[in-house]
Design a protein around this nucleic acid. Structure first.
Length: 504
RNA sequence: GCCCCUGUCGUCUAGCCCGGCCUAGGACAUCGCCCUUUCAAGGCGGCAACACGGGUUCGAAUCCCGUCGGGGGCGCCA
């Protein structure tokens, strides 16, 4: 084994995804828990790429993986892109290692060649299943003399390598989140460690890698608990130190099935594109199955590191709640600096064609103010362009039902005709003028409050709801002076249009 | 089917290990009220859970057994 100049009891964890697609939030949560644990304990976090499934692994997926994890806020001390003393960090580059140790097991008589065909094995499996037994390899090739096995291999017969597992006994381990877990060896057959194509099997490669990389704590999904005894058996066969295991419960969709595209966004990439903040997503992910002793829920990564505790991780599966994620996102958006909000909002507004690709300083300044007020109550940045239509779109000719009702009353007609009359000959408009005029109307007609302001809102925005008018008016006035791809009408222009549409 | 894990409000969970402080706490969602120049945001309040059945005990969400439900696994996938 590698002897590296590092304190032997230093905590080392790893995240070992296979680059076969975009990274799923469930995996991201596993990565996050590993990372939080490592960072809190002053340990090392290793990224290892499990790309032995040549059919499905690609370089591009690996790049995405790295990019997505970085975006989330996770970094690693060792990995395929940054190197490290225990490399290489891609399984496809560690093939000789697997062969070397497989050979060792073979020589020690702890492993053997298996010549059973996949079809044959499948038949046995089906038979066991239909008889209500756990499918366990029969051990048929277990006692083929090594010389004979060698001969058959030399003649070109395909062979896999299996680990010899004791026939009786118990494999047990103390899981950091689930406590003691036991498996009867009777339900564990001799697992294949090297496939007949020469590639290592997953259960074998992880053990070699984890052991050689000095991984002390294996934190992974619950779907691996039944792999654990096989892996422990391998550690024992080599006489290696067995790491501490911690199995995290699964992340489910609303219908209690594994979270999938059907349920909505599931990859980090999708959430990023939607405009969910990385800090909101990591915050939410951390709270799936874990909670700090004190009730605070809106936390930054730094605080999560401080508070995280594997012992407080829940053992039952958690349902991914988009509503709560969006709530957390709103909370994190709220505490962002205005400059940051602008930076994040801009791409969405540009893509919607509202803001030019190279905006002027004045335009940027205006957008910053607009974002500041329009982002209120927005779940994710992708919803922002829709909010901006309040400013950019003005269509009094196509009012919705609610707006139409508001301006259809006697009082509303009165307010509007007076208001429009008083603005008819104005050269400019601003909130002070607005306040003065509404004050006059109140005095002259006795109409006030909702009856007064609501119709004016509709006249100015062509909608029943939106921003407060004291925010809306300055924003529109200022914006109308800047040349946007889609020009913003100022208040007086809006009023004229409304007047003509309504025949006032 | 077999093996493993798991079961507190609709959801995430606190409490469980070390029984009484639990008439079970918080958050999201939902409902209502307040605030208000609409809506939202915000503030306040309401509704809402110990899966079920047996034990053990003076006393059980907490300990034990069983039932039922949910999830995971049972590959020459990872």
């Amino acid at each position: 084994m590698n002897i590296i100049n590092e304190s032997p009891d230093k905590i080392r964890v790893r995240f070992a995804p296979s680059p076969t697609g975009y990274i799923h939030v469930g995996n991201a949560r596993t990565a996050l828990f590993n990372w939080l644990f490592a960072r809190q304990k002053g340990g090392s976090f290793v990224l290892r790429v499990e790309d032995t499934d040549i059919e499905r692994s690609t370089q591009e997926y690996e790049r995405n993986l790295i990019q997505d994890l970085r975006w989330l806020g996770i970094d690693w001390d060792e990995g395929p892109d940054v190197g490290g003393p225990f490399g290489p960090y891609r399984q496809s580059e560690r093939l000789e290692l697997y062969h070397k140790y497989a050979k060792q097991l073979l020589e020690e008589g702890k492993a053997y060649y298996c010549f059973c065909s996949p079809e044959e094995l499948e038949k046995e499996r089906q038979a066991a299943l239909s008889e209500g037994r756990m499918p366990v390899y029969s051990g048929k090739c277990r006692n083929i003399p090594p010389e004979e096995a060698e001969r058959r291999r030399a003649s070109g017969e395909p062979a896999a390598i299996r680990l010899k597992v004791p026939e009786e006994g118990l494999v047990e381990f103390d899981d950091l989140v689930r406590g003691r877990v036991e498996f009867d060896l009777k339900v564990i057959g001799d697992p294949i460690i090297v496939r007949s194509n020469g590639m290592p099997a997953y259960n074998y490669a992880v053990v070699i890698d984890d052991a050689l990389m000095n991984i002390t704590h294996v934190i992974r999904g619950e779907d691996h608990v039944s792999n654990t005894p096989r892996q422990i058996l391998l550690y024992k066969a080599f006489g290696w130190k067995i790491p501490v295991f911690a199995h995290l419960s699964m992340v489910m969709g609303k219908d209690n099935t594994r979270l999938s595209k059907r349920h909505g966004a599931t990859s980090l990439d999708q959430f990023r594109q939607e405009g969910v903040l990385a800090e909101a997503l990591s915050n939410y992910l951390a709270f799936l199955g874990w909670s700090p002793p004190e009730g605070h829920e809106v936390l930054q990564l730094k605080e999560l590191i401080k508070l995280f505790d594997l012992g407080r991780v829940s053992r039952s599966a958690a349902i991914f709640d988009y509503e709560k994620l969006y709530w957390l996102n709103r909370q994190h958006i709220k505490i962002l600096q205005p400059e940051k909000k602008l930076e994040l909002a801009l791409p969405y507004l540009q893509q919607a064609g509202l803001i030019p690709a190279n905006p002027s300083a004045e335009q940027l300044d205006w957008v910053k103010k607009a974002v500041e007020v329009l982002i209120e109550g927005v779940d994710k940045f992708s919803e922002l362009p829709q909010k901006f239509t309040l400013i950019f779109d003005f269509g009094p000719e196509k009012l919705d039902q609610e707006a139409r009702e508001i301006i259809s009353t006697e009082k509303a007609r009165k307010v509007l005709s007076v208001f429009i009359q008083k603005t008819l000959n104005l050269e400019e408009f601003n909130y002070e003028i607005f306040a003065q005029i509404t004050g006059e109307i109140k005095k002259e007609t006795g109409i006030k409050g909702k009856d007064l302001y609501h119709p004016i809102r509709v006249a100015l925005t062509a909608r029943a709801s939106g921003l407060e008018l004291d925010k809306f008016i300055p924003l529109v006035e200022e914006g109308s002076k800047l040349s946007f791809p889609r020009p913003i009408l100022n208040c007086l222009q809006r009023l004229k249009k409304t007047a003509s549409v309504l025949g006032l």
